[in-house]
Amino acid sequence: MVQKSKNGNAFFERGSWYHRIKWYDEDYLVRYGKKGGFKTEEEAEKSYRKYLKAFEDQKRTLMRRKDTRLEFKQYLQEWLQCQTCFQSTTKKVYQYVLGQALPYMHTMKLCAVNERYLETAIQKVSERTESYGLKLYELFSMALSDAFSESLIEYNPMQECKRPKRKKIELHILNEQQKSLFMRSAKCSSWYLEILLCMFCGMKRGEIYALRFDDFHVEERTVTITHQVSAEYVKKEDGNYICVPTEKEIEMENARRILRVPEIIMEELEKRRTKNEDKRILYGNRYKEHHLISCQKNGDYRSLGSMNAALKRLCKQAGIPNMTTQDLRDMYAEMMLKSENVSFLKLTALMGYGTIEETYERYSDLLVRNEDQNKYINQILGEEGMF
């Protein structure tokens, strides 16, 4: 009986490990063979995956050249699926944006695509969400550049397309009185620690949801950010999708960072530790232990929209305009520019933005003046000795 590897892709014969291979000949016919001489099944399995990928790449290339009737929408989907240089989060963004654009794109052959067709799709998507229009422009540019390089089209219509202009970002910054009213309401809520982390550390909602007590260094008063919770759409048996909070390691190196933490946050952290321990005892075996600082009563991950929903209730209670977690982050940027006169390069690192250009575009209009950070926080909280 032939000895096979665990995955069944490799087999042992004549003193070494082998695996099957296949490829296309010049007539587009699939040919088969085998490759051997491997000392271990792991080496054979690795080689098998390498040859399988090469076969799939060859298949896509040949089918494109063979079929001159390739539709543009089909090409975009196949091209995006083949991109291995993108980070998974970046790829998901482009996939989502393309999904938003497809309903506005009537069927057209790749070779017939023109700038008017492309600009119409970009405009339709931009009308829904401006940033998606810019991402669609990027997607079209990269995909059609490759199509031109592979001689699938005679010219690149994106050369004639106008890049959509980004409107100036309007920041929703509360005045000092509104901030004090808001923090007065927030202090009595179960979201006080999360609000402090957003407003005085500039952390994103997903980063807060993934924080554990071990991420905080008490003596140095720092927090290390390496994970985040994001939306994962899971298909149910009935065909519909549900949004499931899923924790993942942060892929962007710029977004992984260590931040200094105000004393008030360290104090609230210990209070939260006690509350979570009480919940764990109360729920017993039903408690889902993830060691999270921000979690549901049973210890499980919070739903992604729960914090913004809580902020809406708090703002209504305080009698101030509605805010989101991003608005709290914007007020952190305002604080850092006011209190320490930090550079945009440093602010980019503190907030985990991808580029300094992105940070400058969002915050360039904020008034920069030197003001003591400790005094700034104490003024908002109405207390002393927060740092």
Rank of each mutant, 00 (worst) to 15 (best):
L193Y: 04
L282S: 10
E138S: 12
E263R: 04
K162R: 13
F200T: 06
M63K: 12
K53L: 15
L314Q: 07
T359H: 08
K316I: 12
T325S: 15
N7Q: 08
E71M: 12
K34S: 15
K4Q: 12
I377T: 06
E13R: 15
I122T: 09
V234T: 09
N341R: 06
F86K: 01
V218C: 08
E154H: 03
E43I: 02
G385T: 09
A318C: 11
D238G: 03
I195F: 08
R260Q: 12
F55V: 06
Q178A: 11
G299H: 04
C295N: 07
W191R: 00
C243L: 06
I153E: 07
A186E: 10
M307D: 09
R280D: 02
T84P: 00
K109L: 15
S364Y: 14
L367Q: 15
I320Q: 11
R257H: 12
G352C: 03
T129N: 14
R64D: 13
E263N: 08
P157A: 02
Y332S: 01
S131E: 14
Y48N: 06
Q3Y: 07
T274H: 08
D372L: 01
D278W: 01
T359W: 12
F140D: 11
E340G: 15
R49Y: 12
Y51E: 14
Y48S: 08
G319E: 08
L62N: 12
A309I: 07
D327A: 00
R116I: 14
I21F: 02
D365L: 02
K50Y: 11
H291P: 00
H19M: 02
D25Y: 09
A186G: 08
L350V: 04
E219D: 15
S141K: 13
L110R: 01
E249N: 07
D214I: 03
Y94C: 03
A210W: 07
G36T: 07
Y94M: 04
H290S: 03
M203Y: 02
C315Q: 05
Y209G: 02
N9E: 11
I242D: 14
E371H: 13
E383P: 04
R31L: 11
G284Y: 03
G284R: 01
K4L: 07
Y241T: 11
Y363M: 00
K316Y: 13
F12C: 05
F344G: 06
D372C: 10
H217W: 03
R69I: 00
S5A: 05
Y192I: 00
R205L: 13
V244W: 05
Y51K: 07
